[in-house]
Design a protein around this nucleic acid. Sequence first.
RNA 1: GGGGGCGUAGUUCAGCUGGUUAGAACGUCGGCUUGUCACGCCGAAGGUCGCGGGUUCGAGUCCCGUCGUUCCCGCCA
Length: 594
Amino acid sequence: MEVPIEALGDWERTHDCGTLGADYIGQRVLLMGWVWRRRDHGGVIFIDLRDRYGITQIVFNPQHDSAALQKADQLRSEFVIAVEGVVESRPEGMINSKLPTGAIEVNCDQLRTLNTSPTPPFLIEDEIDAGEEIRLKYRYLDLRRPRIQQNLLLRHQAYRAVRNLLDEQKFIEIETPILTKSTPEGARDYLVPSRVHPGHFFALPQSPQTYKQLLMIAGYDRYFQIVKCFRDEDLRADRQPEFTQIDIEMSFVREDQVMDVAERLTRSLFAKLGKINLPDPFPRLTYHEAMDRFGSDKPDMRFALELVDASVGARASEFKVFRSVLEDGGEVKGINVKGCNSFSRGKIDGLIAFAQDLGAKGLSWIKHTDNGLESSIVKFFPEAAQTLLIKALDSEPGDLLLFVADQPAMVARVLGALRLELAQRLELIPADSWTPLWVTEFPLLERDEEAGRFTAMHHPFTSPMEEDLPLMDSDPGAVRARAYDLVLNGNEIAGGSVRIFQRPVQARLFELLAIGKEEAEAKFGFLLEALEYGAPPHGGIAFGFDRLIALLTGEDSIRDIIAFPKTNKASGLMENAPSAVDNTQLRDLGIRLA
RNA sequence: GGGGGCGUAGUUCAGCUGGUUAGAACGUCGGCUUGUCACGCCGAAGGUCGCGGGUUCGAGUCCCGUCGUUCCCGCCA
């Protein structure tokens, strides 16, 4: 039977579903919300009424109003209703301590059914067991879940806090274009065809990088923006095609001042929104040291399990695998997995497979027992070599030693990943531990072996370190950049740099990047020209806002802190985007599909 | 671009070495129920086993392809 829908009329909500308590007993109230759960006891019906503030129990009691009770019989999950009634204390022993409003209930005498709902495809509750596919298709239902609503509330509070904090420090928020110009380096661009200029395209910004530099040249010496950025690359749990940055740029500063602003912002956000006290100051590590000790440029510092150079011990051995790698300019490094010499053969084989999947040729292992070192390769290690290994890895009986021999990049890659994997398996990561870290002195350039040229590791506007300027000609790969990343628990949450503000330096860098004069002029001519007109020294940083919120809410996926996220293949399951368009639209744009 | 997981009732899943009637829980519907709050009790309905092809006497199960989703590598200045 169709349930009739009633008009709202002149009814006005007096309270929300999260605030009523013992103080309100005796008051007449009018609540509106969604039917969360209905419990029918024949004579009496309970409704849990839900809005984004909470849940309030509504009672329909024949002694109070039998007409309302009859109507309540028709209510189903997710119907929208308005109820008027009296706040009453619950009978003796019926208080629900799990609900903030659990001391009271609203005894209803007036009920309006404002809208009905089909049975929802999944239950609207926090401990949801529905898959992501169905949740994303019915995102508006998923968004009704209190947990997601709390996430978005925290996100809102973060926007506010960021704006307030930066405003207090004289930063001003300025919007930059979303329809902008395609750039040659970096991620793949999302393109937008121009109708007025057939065959020409806008790009959606990967970041407002050039605009914020131009704002510095324009004299807005402290800029920020909470801004959408777009990158057409493959996705991950912490990567969406459109994502939000807190973008910051400052003039007349060195890296220290930018880092100070970023640190204070981060500390303040975590204190305010997460009740988490971060250290002051954040520790720093150079890129070189991070790679050397942790095999990563964003090391998780919540646990040790450091990488150790075992080359001396390897060199003293007769183990050909190690020796030939060393002769080829490679290295041998190991990690000491404390107290794990009881790992089964199968477990170790699993680690070897893990290493090989990452590209390692192999993974050597040695068990340190009470009888000394044991493994199939120990026979190649004379006692002196064994002593060197034990000393290098600070090994003692009970330990398991793992080694990778390869070129430094591969050693870092494999042992860095193995370090994280082992920490997870051995549960070495303490809960509620928050360890931020600055990584500094990144290389300016990265060798792209396929293309046979250098690319900018950060971006092509990053300033080289002054003392490395002479290397620009002799050894470009060794030039360090004035770039810095902020890492928290192994997540890169912000990255920035001091920029080039002198045209000749910028032109030289474009040269190194094999961006020809003509191309540089076509792509970045406006910036190069602007640099000539009194560009101040400047630098900045950008936070990955979504990752920040995910950390603060404890969500593993940034999809749970974005209202309408895309899937791994960058589609919107609810609105079914992207989709085909009319031929007339294409014709207007001068586009013919292949 | 590559690798792994998943796809069976509205939802989450089970379904063994291929075997004839594909199950459970939750949800839904009906009945009962005046103090529940994940209410309870009784009963019922509900299936294109993602899609296409193949192997087979026989396929949810095996094989190939494809689509979707997810995790990872590459990629993401």
